[in-house]
């Protein structure tokens, strides 16, 4: 019995670890896509900020400095995407693809510049586990939920906050409106361009948190290509969660759980590869199932040009 409980606790903790970076990136993707800008560059945004965070933490020895550099890098790359998509009306898919490539090539290049070779950085300062007294003593779920990195607590906080911002503030209303009927936002005297810039910028910083979690929490170093498709899984979570912060978080947890369970108990029963397919298959099913009805923001991917 106790063994089972321990295992459950471990699975829960591992689910959270798997899901946290996905949730950050999915929340980021949501801001961008709710404003009407497709962001398939989440993978690249996470990757570059994971690297920038590691560099900042390495040279300062301070995780918070790393966090700041990561946020800066995420923002910078997101702004490239924003300038391309919003100002230059570039194709958003291509721009996103380019962002991914830029991050892949950029991290590879800068690894050599900063650390002399590719591969993995030296160990860097990272966010230690923080035990919350009292709560962490709850059996089973206590250690799983409340003995985690600071970033996980930030995630607990950001999910409801994001929900609040998107659905309960004027900013959120304007953001959603920009992604649905930009003309309506324009005639209401609000700048669609500005709203979309905000959306994409926020996506960069939130994806950066996901990247930081990878290089400064899950690991204490940056490894080339360490995002390993997580940006795309986050995209899947975003779609599966129907562009809703709570939904996306639940989807990310579901994906994280599937992985955790396989790792712990079912590796022999279900091949790992099939578990890894799971988020993608679910996303396709959801997209096809909702087919006729538009579940994505209806102006998603369309550049807006004033008359």
């Amino acid at each position: 019995m106790e063994e089972t409980l321990t295992a459950l606790g471990a699975i829960l903790a591992s689910t959270l670890r798997n899901a946290t970076p996905l949730i950050f990136a999915a929340l980021g993707g949501m801001f961008s896509e709710r404003s009407g800008v497709v962001n398939i560059g989440l993978e690249g945004l996470m990757l570059i900020s994971a690297f920038a965070g590691a560099v900042g933490a390495f040279y300062s020895g301070n995780a918070l400095v790393g966090l700041a550099t990561a946020l800066g890098a995420g923002l910078l790359f997101a702004l490239i995407h924003a300038v391309m998509c919003i100002t230059f009306e570039a194709d958003q898919i291509i721009s996103g693809t380019a962002i991914n490539l830029l991050a892949l090539g950029g991290t590879g290049f800068l690894m050599v510049v900063f650390f002399g070779s590719g591969g993995t950085t030296p160990r860097v300062a990272s966010f230690e586990l923080v035990r919350i007294p009292g709560l962490a003593d709850i059996p089973v779920i206590g250690p799983a939920l409340f003995e985690q990195s600071l970033l996980v607590y930030l995630m607990y906080f950001l999910v409801p906050l994001t929900f609040f911002v998107v659905f309960r503030t004027p900013f959120g209303l304007r953001l959603r409106a920009s992604g649905e009927v930009p003309e309506a936002v324009d005639t209401a005297g609000v700048s669609v361009t500005r709203m979309r810039y905000y959306g994409v910028a926020l996506s960069g910083m939130l994806a950066a948190l996901g990247g930081v979690y990878l290089s400064m929490s899950l690991l204490s170093a940056f490894t080339e290509g360490m995002t390993n498709g997580r940006g795309f899984i986050a995209l899947a979570a975003l779609i599966f969660g129907r562009w809703n912060p709570i939904g996306a978080a639940v989807a990310a947890l579901l994906f994280g759980l599937a992985q955790a369970v396989t790792f712990r108990v079912a590796q022999d029963v279900i091949p790992l590869e099939f578990v890894q397919m799971f988020p993608y298959i679910l996303t396709i099913v959801v997209l096809a199932g909702f087919g006729g009805r538009a579940i994505a923001p209806s102006a998603l991917g369309k550049p807006y040009r004033k008359e």
């Binding site: 309960r168 004027p170 209303l173 649905e180 009927v181 309506a184 209401a188």
Partner: peptide
């Protein structure tokens, strides 16, 4: 120039929203 998924009230106040604190 209405936004179909939003409510009537949300559509009406868009761009000139009544606020309470920072919230809508």
């Amino acid at each position: 120039t209405l936004i179909p998924p939003l409510t009537v009230a949300e559509n009406i106040v868009l761009g000139a929203e009544p606020r309470k604190g920072g919230a809508l």
